[in-house]
Amino acid sequence: MFEARLVQGALLKKVMEAIKELLNEASFDCAHSGILLQAMDNSHVSLVSLNLRREGFDKYRCDRNLVMGMNLSSMSKILKCASNDDIITMKAQDNADTVTFVFESPKQEKISDYEMKLTNLDQDHLGIPETEYSCVIKLPSAEFARICRDLSQFGESIVISCTKEGVKFSAAGDIGTANIKLAQTATVDKEEDAVMVDMQEPVTLTFACKYLNMFTKATPLSPQVCLSMSPDVPLVVEYKIEDIGHIRYYLAPRIGD
């Protein structure tokens, strides 16, 4: 028996918005410690890694490990039926071929359940090596979304360049060039407004706008985003999900000229 009850059901709705453009389907690996999802997009350029710890749920039960293959467009349709203040429970029997979503309104006057067929997915799992990143940049997530959106007008790629002075985002194309420089903030009233750069060595990498823009669909999950870069390895874009876990996106760089 698997059962996970999330009082902040809106978080699950936001998680779905953050992954459904990148992925058509994905396996939810449910275990005693929580729920994990790891899946690449169809072109093998990016990877989504989602971690929801059991402690983040107000009720969590997982008697035996369970892999639930879900069609994300179907799951998204179902989660759209939940109100933002609904409590959401996911449950499944062992070896079941369906999962049930239960939505409870805060005062319990409306309770809905939706049963969805599971699919068998034969997905590649990737071993992601532990990496000490040369540059770790924290910035407001809305600022990052704005930068990606603005620079996408200029070309298909964004160059991210991190030095001890700060971080520079650049794009170039037919209409011209664009550069956005963010300096590390000295003092801020709110921690979530800060730009922080932790740099061991300068790094410059180029990434496809299309994917960066899809990652920014996670913006409503967290006021801050963390970018980790090292020379010639995939970028990591991480959004914390309150006390419950995180969503990380890995993006292979564009290389050569």
Binding site: S43, H44, S46, D124, L126, I128, T206, V233, Y250, R254
Partner: peptide, 14 residues
């Protein structure tokens, strides 16, 4: 023009 690399060049299938 820079070419898009694949994640499979960096991470191993497990």
């Amino acid at each position: 023009m820079a070419k898009q690399s694949s994640l499979l060049n960096f991470f191993n299938r497990s």
